[in-house]
Design a protein around this nucleic acid. Structure first.
Lengths: 184, 184
DNA sequence: GAGATATGTCAACAAGACTGACGTAAATGG
DNA sequence: CCATTTACGTCAGTCTTGTTGACATATCTC
């Protein structure tokens, strides 16, 4: 994983014609949120990734486990609708989870064609582990003082920024301040 | 792309022992945000994906193009720090973008080892197109009335929900209401 | 000039997505 | 009751995007 610098090098940047600031257009602020959402989501999925790696699972397994845990009795078709992947993709990871006893299938009582999905105790436990680290990050993000005005924009900005690893927030903010035409 | 149902089928669910409601623990609300963040991010990247497909590009190309556009003169090392991928991975997509004239490299003036990255006009135009659809979604999410109490939690919930395709919000909310122990 | 740094590149591999085709079991509608 | 549809499984091949490891080259720094 090699730490987490994010552009903290010897600021050896060039000043070229492309650096001439163009006016920071008003209401262009949601551009910043695009990046923050990228960084926030990256760190958000990074937490569970580390746990999953210990089990030989990936994000695809996580998503399946999560939804089956939270919505016991989900059918294959429903899961496909939620995840928006093909049944072939789903089947590969689902097979892993079933073979290793994290998920079980039960034939539907009303419709015997359906395979209802349930977590085993082991599956529930693993899902809880994964949920824990993500909920922790979210709880922290929500409890962190948003600071400043509470417009919808700054609330979202504060929320997304707080979703990023604390050690990295400064680096992200430094990067974003470097933007062409940034408000400095 | 085949529409976007998300669990709207003939509600043929079973009622089994696993459905016995377990008390919805208080302060467990950030669990909902986990899912909302998943759905929000899925739709958030879905917009640009459709545009990128027309160019034969993927998300990896998008990320490179985005950061080079916003931070002209970025070096390879800086980009690697931001994206957290290996130089081999970066090189593959960067090569595509350079060969097709969306990005150009310029040798650093201070340090001639560095390759400073810049967008061509075509690159800037494409980046603007991609940013536009994402900014549109964000602007809409921020302007949508959050409704109700304005705790940090419900602000985040409102923001994330508003990030989801409007046609699908109801389906997502229906799904989440179905959760085990949901507050009904 | 030696060594570190910035970048490029070859090769092999893995996860996770896709398409297309085909098979089976069960429900459903005439 | 039989034809069709639906729900699911699976085989086979491909693509994108990530990985590791090794090695080359140019440039900077001491």
């Amino acid at each position: 994983m090699e730490g987490a610098p994010i552009v903290d090098r010897h600021a050896t940047r060039e000043v070229t014609k492309a650096d001439t600031p163009r006016a920071a257009a008003p209401a262009e602020g949601s551009d910043d949120l695009i990046e923050l959402l990228f960084f926030a989501y990256r760190d958000f999925v990074g937490d569970p990734d580390r746990i999953l790696a210990q089990y030989g699972f990936g994000r695809a397994h996580h998503r399946v486990l999560h939804f089956v845990d939270r919505y016991p009795g989900l059918t294959i078709a429903e899961l496909l609708d939620i995840l928006r992947i093909t049944k072939q993709s789903l089947n590969r990871v689902l097979k892993d989870l079933i073979e290793q006893d994290y998920i079980v299938q039960k034939t539907g009582a009303n419709d015997r064609r359906q395979r209802l999905l349930f977590c085993t105790p082991a599956g529930t436990a693993l899902a809880a582990d994964l949920t824990r680290v993500q909920a922790r990050r979210l709880a922290r993000a929500l409890s962190d003082p948003p600071e400043g005005d509470s417009t919808a924009y700054s609330a979202a900005e504060g929320f997304l920024l707080a979703m990023i690893d604390p050690e990295e927030r400064a680096a992200v903010q430094r990067l974003m301040a470097r933007r062409v035409g940034a408000v400095a």
